[in-house]
Design a protein around this nucleic acid. Structure first.
Lengths: 185, 185
DNA sequence: CATCATCCATACTTGGGGGTACGGTCTCCG
DNA sequence: CGGAGACCGTACCCCCAAGTATGGATGATG
């Protein structure tokens, strides 16, 4: 199924990255990854000094992915703030698993915390810029941006499937966005 | 300092509860708790069959505490929806550590997940009722309530101390509440 | 006083995951 | 053909936390 030749360092990082997104930081185990890759620990300790080196590589990989996504956001074809916000929401849905894992990891790891802080600053900057473009006062825009991000992150820890209404609306995000923009859809 | 006589089952639960709030579910260790209580594991395995029994007791303790808080909210002296929402916010700040630990725990434990679901249903009901009282349409009230709760939970995983503005406002919660209520403070 | 139940200390075993030592097998290149 | 280095399997050690076995200390009770 996978590479027939050899297991590269990049393969290890990729597999670990998927496990990080699936089961969190503590879910990244050498033995488990080795079994998943069809090798043993001997392979791991050839490519890496120890587990911390792997985790550091995961941090790098995540930071780069985030940077790319940020650039994609910044260079987005549209200039309409509302549409940009919608794209940020959509992007957030895709990266939810890794993002959640990173934030949980950041709660007991200084390096991860710094990486998340850095990424959040950039993301908050993007959102705030969109709100500025929609005419909100700077302070108000910052607060609203923060609320939007928090609401989005809160979805990670809130079981979403047990309100009262069965539909739950596929366009609930759009309605939520309008609420944050001051409207009453 | 504490009880000089003997360490009761309730003492174990209380100490474990504090550790749960401080370091999460995996932070609840028998040895650590024993040292903290000034005894050894022999005491633990006298009061409890095994660790899962302790964790189940913690679930019960949390559920009861939540129920009490809910009742206090329901029987609150004021009938003003805005004030009630403010009290929910304030209460949330106090229980943040345990709440966060419970939600993280619920991500890999069915029983904890069920307990959190149950509590969230009740809390969402309270918030929705307040919004109903403020004149929001039922569907809108539910969505706003959910957004408020998510935003509140999101604070658990968002490092809050690195925006651009130094003040960060002590009354940021009030301003946030007004935003969720459709105003533009 | 003798006895029984309560409560806990001591010492042990067990399982899992990180880490290490070393030997083996490829492939490439001279 | 024959090393040399890349890559990995095997077996092992270490540490930690859960769990167990058993005996000692204490207090109430007849």
């Amino acid at each position: 199924m996978t590479a027939r030749t050899k297991v590269s360092r990049r393969d290890w990082i990729e597999a670990a990255y998927q496990e990080l997104a699936r089961a969190g930081e503590r879910g990244v185990g050498i033995n488990a990854l080795a079994a998943r890759l069809g090798v043993t620990k001997g392979s791991f300790y050839w490519h890496f000094k120890d587990r911390p080196e792997l985790m550091a590589a995961l941090l790098d990989r995540w930071a780069h992915e985030r940077t790319d996504e940020m650039l994609e956001l910044a260079l987005g074809s549209t200039g309409d703030p509302r549409e940009r916000l919608r794209r940020i929401q959509a992007l957030g849905r895709d990266v939810a698993p890794v993002d959640r894992a990173m934030r949980l990891w950041a709660r007991h790891d200084a390096a991860a915390a710094e990486a998340v802080r850095h990424a959040d600053r950039a993301l908050l900057g993007h959102i705030t810029a969109c709100l500025d473009g929609l005419g909100f006062a700077p302070a108000d825009a910052r607060l609203r941006a923060r609320l939007m991000l928090r609401s989005w992150i809160g979805g990670y820890l809130l079981a979403d499937g047990d309100d009262g209404d069965p539909p739950a609306g596929p366009d609930a995000d759009d309605r939520a966005l309008e609420i944050f923009l001051g409207g009453t859809p």
